[in-house]
Design a binder for these strands. Structure first.
Lengths: 155, 155
DNA sequence: GAGATTTAGTTTCATCTGTAACCAATGGCA
DNA sequence: TGCCATTGGTTACAGATGAAACTAAATCTC
């Protein structure tokens, strides 16, 4: 459907539905919203909180700053989300011995439990989306998104 | 870099950096922010306003509701952005004769001018991003994103 | 080792966004 | 025709988000 009415020349006309940044935005929104809806209701987690749980689940002991880097969120967002997660007893923050400014973050038992239950849900959603593609297309997608992520870094 | 340490099995481990919804979100954000920065400074436009200008530039005479559909924004967002655009004299809204609830929207001369200057900028940004891909990859990307957009519709 | 600089994280404030309630006009339909 | 349901659009309120200012700890420099 998107193929028949593609752009005429290389850079001529701006057609919103064909404009890659727009399409990526719509795609990302649809996907994020669908997944977020599932764990928001079940666990009361926001996307930032979810990301932090995902990252700490695999890499406990990160500082807030490292979490910010790993999740590509800014430190304000991390600070707020961590505050909520500590509040809800899903993340434990203990001061770093060597640098009192730093917080060493890790999941509590409750946090681990959430992580253990949420990861399969997330992966299943991803699989549902990827079900639209065959193995070769998935590999292509992976590579293309990787390239674009690199390229977009220095836009 | 993303290829060497890919997922081990089909659905085993949740690794944020490899998780498609996450990657799409980061990609979309990087791209949108880069482009938005350019026209936000030059024209003082938000993303919703920009989208509306893009759509009305090609298809004048749409109603607010049709604009909402065309841009995939909700009607509240459209209402607000249109209000600003009317305020800044870039969009003209006249009541529909046949249905007094409807607004017929179109660009003013000023709006046209903004559109004419912004479209090339947007397309150039898109091209800069796509410069990372060759022709075959672009075609693949186009098709893949199309598939995913469809699939994501019913997530 | 005192003062300037940088760094980790928080708070503040202003703006944006999303949901729900709302208002007014239209379209049944009895 | 008069009432109800629907539709186009706006308003109101609450929560999310981002930039910049701020605090406190560490580091650097002389």
């Amino acid at each position: 459907m998107a193929s028949a009415k593609r752009k005429p020349g290389p850079t001529e006309l701006l057609v919103l539905e064909d404009f890659l940044p727009y399409r990526l935005s719509i795609l990302s929104n649809r996907v994020s919203r669908a997944i977020a809806a599932r764990y928001a209701k079940t666990f009361g987690l926001s996307i930032p909180e979810w990301r932090i749980i995902a990252v700490l689940g695999r890499r406990p002991g990160l500082t807030a700053k490292e979490v910010a880097e790993a999740t590509e969120m800014d430190k304000v967002a991390v600070s707020r989300a961590v505050a909520k997660l500590v509040e809800s007893k899903r993340v434990a923050a203990r001061a770093d011995r060597e640098d009192a400014r730093r917080q060493i973050l890790s999941l509590t038992a409750q946090g681990e439990s959430v992580h253990a239950r949420i990861a399969p849900i997330a992966l299943a959603s991803e699989q549902r989306l990827l079900a639209a593609l065959d193995a070769r297309e998935r590999a292509q997608l992976d590579a293309l998104v990787g390239h674009l992520l690199d390229a977009a870094k220095t836009l």
